[in-house]
Design a protein around this nucleic acid. Structure first.
Length: 502
RNA sequence: GCCUCCGUAGCUCAGCUGGUAGAGCAGCGGAUUCUUAAUCCGCGGGUCAAAGGUUCAAGUCCUUUCGGAGGUACCA
């Protein structure tokens, strides 16, 4: 297992070289996509075409052998006949399953009627030194699938399709916002202060400026600076980084969509979200809004249900007032939640999450959140304890978060300062005063939205784990020095202190 | 972080209350001009994740470590 390179394949490689065959030529005839060849196949019989791709298992009959060749678009059977392949025939056994080849041949059928490219000329495009996984079961081992996604992609049917769907979701999301005259922008990933969400950041350091930097946990505060600047409608789809736990719904780096629209409020943004879902249902799900996720069916076709946060809280916690700390504490204890050292608002929200979130089958907009847990959202005029904010839930999973953006710089600075006062690992050590300055120049009333693209893709592809829609999910590094010594060995290098929040 | 489960051939897996390592596929040699999970005959392939322990004897039991999965916690 140390190696994995099959010696018989290396022998074949050497033998090919000895016979003057380049096992890794710079280029071969690539021909046309297989799907194109298959289209109107019967009208093209006897014509000569070239295709290129990966060879699957060979079925050998002495003077005749069959195999399928696959490319990104499809697969087609290749027929290798001794009498048609003078040059290739003698080296045929050194070209085997998993190798990449280019084949020129004549289209036809077998006696059994299978569409077949009868090979006239075969060129090795790249020798595979490792064998393919088991032909019937493919690669089953989850760890190997994630560590060696390159194998998973070609060996397991459906994986490429899932990622093609992901690509389409992102593309159609862009189309949707583009069609509304939004500008796609790019804001800093390396940030001197982090904000726009509550999460522990990854930290790094810039050498030339001798300055600590954070990988962004959200692009929010930069995007809203653009609204101040008059860009009025902007969105960004990009990676954000949160130094938190890993689960079926969490990867340390994930893709977030954020959009901001001047002169819109959270109700307008609700309409945008429904518009986006309608667009995705039409373009990605072919108009069929029903998806199956974790064995349950959901209808993603808008309109979606709506429910007030405090109403939901009251339903599940009768007699408990969200704003009455003593009542919340009693309820939290009843639920077995951690109570000590937890902020009142945070605790009340913990109770909400413990009692309500699982009931949110959805899709449902939960709206009008307490201001205390919404530091960037505008207060409601009739009740300042509540903010104009909603979250979209599907399958108990938070998919999106939106609000009427707080544009009062004085209120904003106060709320930032409250965060800094109860400073923990998840809040910056200082207020982003430049953001407050930006607001002081005047930000139009605006509606903003954040959507977790990965979770959206999970839902639309029916993937139970975020790792199934992230091409290369983060896994622990395999330490080549581990397990070597007779006693447990400490890692030779300690992780940099900078990554440990103090 | 905690709990549960998993790690045996390149891959997919079996291996009972402890008795000395198995199958299929892949590979190698042979037969085969119609297969498509081809078939038939023969062959090779293992640090049972690692280290330590109990035992006459460990893939199997115990401890620790490494890696993974699921759950849980953290993630306003």
């Amino acid at each position: 297992m140390t190696d994995g390179i099959a010696s018989d394949r290396q022998d074949k490689l050497k033998a090919l070289r000895a016979e003057g065959v380049d096992p890794f030529p710079a280029r071969v005839a690539k021909g046309q996509p297989i799907a194109e060849v298959l289209e109107g196949f019967d009208d093209k019989l006897e014509s000569t075409v070239t295709i290129a791709g990966r060879l699957s298992q060979l079925r050998d009959f002495g003077k005749l052998r069959f195999s399928h060749l696959s490319d990104r678009s499809g697969s087609l059977q290749i027929g290798f006949e001794r009498d048609a392949l003078q040059d290739f025939w003698p080296v045929r056994k050194k070209v085997e399953s998993n190798d990449l080849i280019s084949v020129t041949g004549v289209l036809g059928h077998t006696k059994k009627g299978e569409r077949t490219l009868w090979a006239k000329d075969v060129t090795l495009a790249a020798k595979a030194l490792r064998p393919a996984p088991e032909k019937w079961h493919g690669l089953q081992d989850q760890e190997q699938r994630y560590r060696m996604r390159y194998v998973d992609l070609f060996a397991n049917p459906g994986v490429r399709e899932t990622f093609a769907t992901r690509s389409k979701i992102v593309r159609e999301t862009r189309h949707y916002f583009d069609s509304l005259d939004y500008l796609e922008v790019e804001t800093p990933i390396l940030q001197p202060l982090f904000g726009g969400a509550a999460a522990r950041p990854f930290t790094t350091h810039h050498n030339a400026l001798d300055m600590p930097l954070f990988l962004r946990i959200a692009p929010e505060l930069y995007l809203k600076r653009l609204i101040v600047g008059g860009m009025e409608r902007v969105y960004e789809i990009g990676r954000v980084f949160r130094n938190e736990g890993i689960s079926t719904r969490h990867n340390p780096e994930f893709t977030m969509l954020e959009s901001y629209e001047a002169f819109a409020d959270y109700k307008d943004i609700m309409n945008r979200v429904e518009g986006l879902f309608q667009h995705l249902v039409d373009k990605v799900l072919d108009g069929e809004g029903k998806v199956t996720f974790r064995e349950k069916e959901y209808d993603l076709k808008p309109p979606f249900q709506k429910a007030r946060y405090l109403d939901l809280f009251a339903e599940q916690n009768p007699g408990v007032d969200w704003f009455e700390h003593e009542q919340v504490i009693a309820r939290a204890k009843e639920l077995g939640l951690k109570v000590d050292g937890i902020e009142p608002a945070k605790l009340a929200n913990d109770v909400f999450e413990a009692t309500v979130e699982d009931t949110l089958i959805g899709p449902v907009f939960v709206h009008d959140y307490p201001t205390a847990i919404s530091p960037l959202a505008k207060r409601m005029t009739d009740d300042p304890r509540v903010a104009e904010r909603f979250e979209l839930f599907v399958a108990g999973m938070e998919l999106g978060n939106a609000f009427s953006e707080l544009n009062d710089p004085i209120d904003q600075e106060q709320r930032f300062e409250e965060q800094v006062v109860d400073k923990d690992d998840e809040t910056p050590g200082e207020v982003d005063l430049d953001y407050v300055t930006a607001l002081e120049f005047g930000m139009p009333p605006a509606g903003g939205l954040g959507i977790g693209i990965d979770r959206l893709c999970m839902l639309l592809t029916g993937s139970t784990s975020i790792r199934d829609i992230v091409l290369f999910p983060l896994l622990r590094r395999i330490d080549p020095n581990a397990n070597q010594g007779s006693e447990p060995t400490a890692p030779t290098e300690q992780p940099p202190e900078a990554n440990k929040p103090k």
